[in-house]
């Protein structure tokens, strides 16, 4: 109960309209805080503003380092850039040796993104084939890709293997584990276990499990690809090099006063004494490298792979269409081993 005049005045003041001047905003307080932020982070549109100033080799190295980027479009773009550069320049002009590029790019065979994987293959094709360096790791990556859970990765790994066989077939065979382990991988993929194997006997022997393990439910595309690649692989591995009877004489005549010069020269391949395995772990029969086609044939027969593949091929041949055709190719390749 405001009884005094002062209180009455105060009460009245609450209901009085303030007189405002039109056309002039109230000036802001001096200590007002600006709260009109809407973003918590600062976004840079370009990471490097001096794009034009870089020389090509720096750009190349930058793109090479981008291969391990987290973003898959960035990886693909970097690969594209590298491919165009490699295709455009000759071998001597590349800022990095081909082996370094391969070492960086080979892990992308197992990449999750389709575009990246196809681009890797393109890059490999664009690179000069004669200074790839040792193929050990590349072959292991391919093997890992062939047994990958995702069938897309399997397919692209097979593509890479196809290219490898065409371009550097003998070098692949010579890598440690490049022959037997690869064959074992194919055997697992196609589930062509040898008849006297433990697995077959465990399952009862007479009938085999369904072959859907490889994940090719709808189409036989993967299976066909696998069989085709296998036949190429076997053809490359089992073919004896065409012996030229006059080669030795020719070479001798070329550098007449010197005798057996090639044996005394510096080796022309990298890691020439790799087969001695001086520094690596002890290898068993599977991870051994087989330089010679004769050795390869011997091992192939010794491990009973021939029988397994033959029976597998026979079984696959009974399927109609592409699978059958691929299998008959395979049988042809297998005949090479029979000779030895």
């Amino acid at each position: 109960m405001g009884s005094s005049a002062k209180k009455k005045r105060e009460k009245k003041a609450d209901f009085q309209k303030p007189k405002l001047k039109v056309g002039k905003a109230r000036p802001k307080n001096t200590n007002a805080t600006d709260t009109s932020f809407s973003s918590k982070s600062i976004i840079l549109k370009q990471q490097n503003l001096s794009e034009s100033g870089r020389d090509s080799s720096a750009l190349f190295n930058h793109n090479l380092s981008l291969l391990s980027s987290k973003n898959d479009t960035q990886r693909r773009d970097a690969l594209q850039y590298l491919t165009t550069v490699c295709a455009a320049t000759t071998k001597s002009d590349l800022p990095q040796p081909a082996s370094a590029i391969v070492a960086k790019a080979q892990s992308l065979i197992l990449d999750g993104s389709n575009g990246v994987r196809s681009q890797v293959l393109k890059l490999f094709k664009a690179l000069p084939t004669n200074d790839f360096g040792p193929l050990d790791q590349l072959v292991i990556y391919v093997r890992a890709g062939m047994t990958h859970l995702s069938s897309d990765i399997r397919l692209s790994a097979l593509d890479v293997l196809d290219w490898l066989l065409v371009s550097k077939g003998t070098a692949v065979m010579a890598t440690p584990g490049g022959w037997v382990k690869m064959l074992r991988t194919f055997q697992n993929l196609l589930s062509w276990q040898s008849q006297n194997g433990k697995v077959a006997s465990a399952q009862g022997g007479s009938w085999t499990a369904t072959k859907t393990g490889s994940g090719n439910l709808g189409s036989s595309k993967l299976l066909v690809h696998q069989i085709t690649t296998l036949s190429t692989f076997l053809t490359v591995g089992l073919t004896l090099p065409a012996a030229d009877p006059h080669a030795a004489a020719k070479r001798a005549s070329m550098c007449f006063p010197l005798y057996q010069m090639h044996a005394h020269m510096l080796p022309s391949r990298s890691n020439a004494f790799g087969y001695l395995n001086l520094f690596g772990a002890v290898r068993d029969q599977e991870s051994e490298g087989y330089d010679d086609a004769d050795e390869r044939i011997a091992v192939f027969n010794e491990l009973g792979l021939l029988d397994a593949f033959r029976s597998g091929a026979k079984e696959a041949k009974q399927e109609a269409g592409e699978v059958g055709r691929a299998a008959s190719n395979l049988e042809k390749a297998l005949k090479l081993a029979d000779v030895g």
């Binding site: 790791q137 990556y141 093997r143 890992a144 047994t147 993929l189 499990a209 393990g213 490889s214 772990a281």
Partner: peptide, 23 residues
Amino acid sequence: PSYHDDFLNQYSQYSSLHELFLQ
């Protein structure tokens, strides 16, 4: 027993990666 082949594939992939890792 039914998934023996699948396991074999994964195991061989493990051994490939393991080999790579050792290198």
